[in-house]
């Protein structure tokens, strides 16, 4: 599903965010991406949905080489990838419902389908009763779930989540993680960037360790400790 070959990313300030990454993630996998701040987790995710292009190397998503995509084809790649951002990126002047429906409007779904699927996604996140609230009227965890609902509403093949539990208390974090596992069990490939060691250790999934832009460890039923490596 996601393949990277010798991928490096150097930003214009000469900061090398990723260094010769080789990676293979199969369809339906659930993968944690761990490492300290600045290890390159966010950059790696941004490369996958082509918010950034690699400085060298190539990236294949579902067999397609994405750095050669034309500008017109990029939106269609992004529609197959749901992204949950660390800072949520919700529209503050739109209700939870409108924020989720937004992702469907963009792909020009018919009105009745927008209605049904938006409600489904919000119900699944347990937010059916708060769909008319503005983001400012929701807690951090609720906003996080709106963001996940928006990422899922298009039924993407890949779900990327960047620190989905970063702003949440541990119990709520675990709840979010259960939702992600549930989504994964329906066949969506899920990639979670986090440095929440407790959650990683509790779930025992594949763990990719990033440090200084390199993958230093890739374990199938991995654990993560802040002081390791």
């Amino acid at each position: 599903m996601i393949q990277m070959f010798q991928v490096s990313k150097v930003y214009s300030n000469q900061n090398k965010a990723l260094d010769q990454i080789n990676l293979h993630i199969d369809k339906g996998e659930f993968v944690f991406l761990v490492g300290p701040s600045g290890a390159g987790k966010t950059t790696l995710m941004r490369l996958i949905f082509r918010d950034e292009v690699p400085s060298s190397g190539s990236i294949l998503i579902d067999g397609r080489n994405i750095e050669r995509l034309s500008a017109g084809a990029i939106p269609y790649l992004r529609r197959s990838i749901g992204v949950v951002f660390q800072d949520f990126k919700l529209l503050q002047d739109k209700s939870a419902w409108e924020n989720v429906a937004f992702a469907l409007r963009v792909v020009e779904a018919p009105a009745h389908e927008i209605e049904i699927r938006t409600n489904q996604a919000l119900d699944m996140m347990g937010l059916g009763h708060k769909k008319h609230h503005l983001p400012s009227e929701l807690s951090g965890g609720e906003q996080q779930r709106v963001c996940i609902a928006r990422a899922l509403v298009n039924d993407p093949a890949i779900l990327l989540t960047d620190e989905p539990t970063g702003n949440l208390d541990p119990e709520l974090g675990y709840e979010i993680m259960k939702v992600l596992l549930d989504i994964n069990s329906r066949g969506t490939t899920v990639l979670v960037a986090t440095h929440d060691a407790t959650l990683v250790n509790r779930l025992q999934r594949r763990v990719l360790h990033l440090r200084n832009g390199k993958i230093v460890k890739d374990s199938l039923r991995g654990t993560y400790h802040h002081d390791e490596i």
Partner: peptide
């Protein structure tokens, strides 16, 4: 610009 950024990230075409 915030809204436009989000539109791009969820796969809106430039014409949209």
């Amino acid at each position: 610009r915030h809204e436009i950024e989000i539109m791009r990230l969820v796969g809106a075409t430039n014409w949209f």
